[in-house]
């Protein structure tokens, strides 16, 4: 199943794409496929919240397919096809792995089985989609030609925040950590998150990072890119906490703290997405 390596050139294109997508889905979603809380969400969360999650994920995947969509302009139908292909591969991969792990078994209700697969499919679909751009072999590399736009950068930050946030939001620890922290810890964590985001992209000169030209002062990049990125990470965190039922019955200051806690990994995910994609 480690099908993301090199294929012989004669491998049929569809099979090759499917193999890459499965590889990507596995790499991106295995930590979640093997997390207990992710399975439990299928029956601890109302079905309509999972429906909202999937409804949000679909346009997000279409957008991601468009943003990483290679070089040439493509029609919406093509982009949407890519996204649905990724979602289908993700659902298939999740179903196979969860069955192999014994997490899906006879006797479970249809609701439970569908819920378990649906939740896992979202991060797996991001992986499946990215696999086609990131895990491609050197010969057909065209991603460098992609023209970067402001909206595109914000969008990639949203995907990165959603992905890393997804890894952590279901765990008990997000809420537990917020109980351990005081509000002063929270403010310090916000500062650390923002500094880390800014540093990742602009300061430490990672490959794929953005070097500021001499005409662009650091505060301009902070205001136009890093702070909106953090705001996106915080909103995505709130959304994920809500989807996973973590905000239920929680006092507003506790929700704020949980958002700050989850926004830390989400912000790192957002910054990493700008570097990697």
């Amino acid at each position: 199943m480690t099908g993301h390596g090199r294929f012989a050139p004669q491998t049929p294109a569809l099979l090759r794409d499917a193999g890459r997508a499965i590889g990507g889905a596995l790499v991106f979603s295995l930590p979640m496929l093997m997390t207990m809380e992710m399975w439990q969400l299928a029956y601890t969360v109302q079905a309509w919240r999972i429906a909202v999650l999937v409804a949000v994920a679909v346009p997000l995947l279409v957008g991601l397919s468009h943003v990483i969509g290679i070089g040439r302009r493509r029609k919406l139908a093509e982009t949407a096809m890519d996204a649905f292909f990724a979602f289908g591969i993700a659902a298939f991969t999740s179903a196979v792995v969860l069955t192999a792990l014994g997490v899906l078994a006879p006797g479970m209700s249809v609701d439970e089985i569908i819920g378990k697969i649906a939740i896992q499919s979202v991060p797996a679909a991001i992986g499946a989609l990215l696999a086609r751009s990131q895990l491609r072999s050197g010969a057909d590399e065209t991603l460098g030609d992609r023209e970067e736009t402001y909206a595109g950068e914000l969008f990639l930050m949203m995907v990165g925040a959603l992905f890393l946030g997804f890894n952590l939001a279901p765990t008990e620890e997000m809420i537990l950590i917020s109980y351990l922290m005081t509000e002063w810890h929270g403010i310090a964590l916000m500062a650390i998150s923002i500094a880390a985001m800014h540093g990742f992209v602009f300061a430490v000169e990672f490959k794929g990072g953005s070097e500021l030209s001499q005409d662009t002062p650091w505060w301009s990049a902070l205001l136009r890119f890093t702070l909106p990125g953090y705001a996106i990470a915080a909103l995505i965190s709130l959304f994920l906490l809500w989807v996973f039922g973590r905000t239920e019955g929680l006092a507003i200051e506790m929700v704020a703290m949980a958002v700050v806690v989850l926004a830390f990994p989400s912000a790192i995910g957002a910054a990493a997405a700008r570097l990697i994609l």
């Binding site: 402001y150 953005s210 030209s213 005409d215 205001l223 136009r224 890119f225 909106p228 953090y230």
Partner: peptide, 22 residues
């Protein structure tokens, strides 16, 4: 890179709104 292009006014508005939110 988008960060070094002449910023569109919307970038400042989004930036200011985010700064206020934070």
């Amino acid at each position: 890179l988008p960060v070094n292009r002449a910023p569109h006014p919307a970038e400042w508005i989004i930036g200011a709104a985010s700064a206020l939110g934070v």
